[in-house]
Nucleic acid binder design. Structure first.
Lengths: 353, 353
DNA sequence: TTGTACGCGTTATCAT
DNA sequence: ATGATAACGCGTACAA
């Protein structure tokens, strides 16, 4: 038996933490038994288990994660990979909050990596990361979750991963999402229902799957209502406030300006609100504005935004749980979550008082 | 010499990553020499170093962080500890962005932990975390950075840590901050300079050191100008948008309402803006509003907020660098960063047109 | 049900 | 300047 390097007595002030040998000695068992108890494996007598647990408690023993990772090639780390420009958005913040919550619950830690989607060495970097970090799994956010090379690399490295809001489902992959197309369809239909006929749309980045689905939903609703799809009413945005400012200006400068503008996220919708001040447009009387996400800004601006709420934190929790609950008895049903139309003060019938 | 378990040829498809033995063999040196090269230690011949580097490159060798952590009791992990309610704020998001940036640069990873400041077992949890994670260091944000028990525990565990925006400097600790008192003083003086005499203030949480310093600066500026400090003009906030809504309502409901309101952060100031709509107050003509941070919301709202910019990302980078650059030749001067008054459209002289 | 012995990939001690 | 070898703490065949 290999002894620990501290005196047999209780822990000194700044002594090294107890290791598995200390526990084994105190409980009068082998380290293997301690290992079994700690990892909740079967084949341990009740009495023995109790003794071990007592020792664990008394010595405040914590398994060393490095030793664990080294020996088992498994860690209690989950990697969150997100595109660096997205870092400022409330969306990512909300995702992270949800992940942290679930990680705590399951005893995992979250390690966050910001990646540059434009970087040609992106795949290599991720390979290096997963090859050396033994992560239990990684979570991919948009637009990273649709980078084919990345997905292939992850597969090849046998790293399990979950994608949040991917462009399109890929066979054998774990995806968590809402029905972005349907959600945008609903919002557009709602605006049409109010009486709007010229509805502007601010797109998200090309490489965001969710953004594309929302555009699709917008078009679908127009078509369904027999309305024409007017290309000049669709402006390009990048999900950022600044891009919303530009896109909004473009739409509001049109000779025949829209009576409503639906932006693919709240940040851009908030920018349209700001624009409307400069154009001297009263919201919602002269212009209706709708966003997407129901992030914090939707309630911070005035008037508050009509938007489509997606359960961001919940999606994040589901994503983490897929990774932490290893033996997943495919509970596939949970992975498509519900959205909800949230009507506030930024929308009204066109030409309303 | 212990051989690697893969064939001598180049890496197979899903082969295990190369280890230090593979590199040593290819470069015809011992593993110790490889270690020296990888860790940039002295006493390696130029020629030898080149050979090793070539091998590292060819095999795309990455040191296994678990083995490293196990052997050296040091990791390339930095822990970010923040209070859970703060998670939604743009402030924390900006901090994290800065940290990630610097971590990348220095080859470190960031592991984020959300802690509940109210939890009585807080200290134990952190102890468990640092005891088992071998973090290179941790970064404490407000209000955690002023929890005495936490600081003591961290000290006892010999974990190095940096505090961001602490209440008061403690001897022997690394702190990164701006002069919150001076910054708030400047803002208040600016409002006084505009002609305001009744200036409301929305405080931050009691346990936030930076919040308290800002209150102090507000009072100092009033005193300096010979203005009375009216208690009913000071409302309690919690740094959240919702709390700003409540505090704003309270201040605007006063019989003698203030002509200007200075909130201790932007989120609460944005809430006051929203309030002013309900009270039918024109900004800035009938009410001036000022915030603090210059976070994203300050520019998203209308009118855009006059605020005090603090270099949040920069502070974050400095904090990380203190931890990563071990042999710190006390460059103390860098750690008190500059703030800046940012005047936008939300403030004007009282009773302006 | 329980225990022994070895390997995981690195750093570090001491030689040389 | 370089190298052989012992830790580091844990998981796990394999044995009992």
């Amino acid at each position: 038996m290999k002894p620990s390097r501290t005196t047999p007595g209780e822990s000194a002030e700044t002594a090294k933490p107890a290791n598995i040998y200390d526990v084994a000695k105190r409980a009068n068992v082998s380290i293997k038994t301690v290992s079994r108890v700690v990892n909740r494996l079967p084949n341990v007598g009740e009495e023995t288990r109790a003794r071990v647990l007592e020792a664990v408690e008394a010595l405040s023993y914590r398994p060393n994660p490095f030793a664990r990772g080294l020996a088992s090639e498994q860690s209690f780390l989950i990697g969150l990979l997100c595109d660096v420009p997205a870092a400022g958005s409330g969306y990512i913040a909300a995702l992270q909050t949800g992940m942290l919550s679930r990680c705590r619950k399951d005893g995992f830690h979250l390690i966050v990596e910001s990646l540059d989607g434009e970087n040609p060495k992106l795949v290599q970097e991720v390979q290096a990361l997963v090859a050396t970090s033994n992560l239990r799994g990684v979570i991919l956010t948009s637009p990273l979750c649709d980078v084919r090379g990345l997905i292939d690399a992850l597969k090849a490295s046998r790293t399990s991963f979950v994608r949040i809001a991917p462009e399109k489902p890929l066979p054998g992959l774990f995806d968590v999402r809402i029905d972005d197309r349907k959600a945008a369809y609903d919002m557009t239909a709602y605006l049409i229902g109010l009486g709007h006929r010229r509805i502007g749309f601010i797109k998200g980045p090309h490489d965001h799957g969710d953004a594309n689905a929302r555009l699709d939903g917008y078009r679908g609703a127009l078509a369904q209502a027999g309305l024409p799809i007017i290309e000049e009413l669709v402006a390009q945005g990048q999900f950022t406030y600044q891009s919303g400012l530009d896109a909004g200006e473009q739409l509001l400068s049109l000779k025949k300006r829209p009576t409503a503008i639906f932006a693919a996220n709240d940040d851009m919708a908030a920018a349209v609100l700001a624009n409307s001040q400069r154009f001297n447009l009263k919201i919602p009387q002269q212009l209706s504005v709708a966003g997407f996400d129901d992030s914090l800004v939707a309630q911070v601006v005035w008037p508050r935004l009509t938007t489509c709420r997606q359960p961001i934190e919940e999606m994040a929790k589901v994503a983490v749980s897929i990774l932490t609950q290893k033996p997943s008895k495919d509970s596939v049903s949970e992975r498509l979550l519900d959205h909800e139309l949230v009507v506030r003060e930024s929308t009204a019938p066109p030409g309303a008082l």
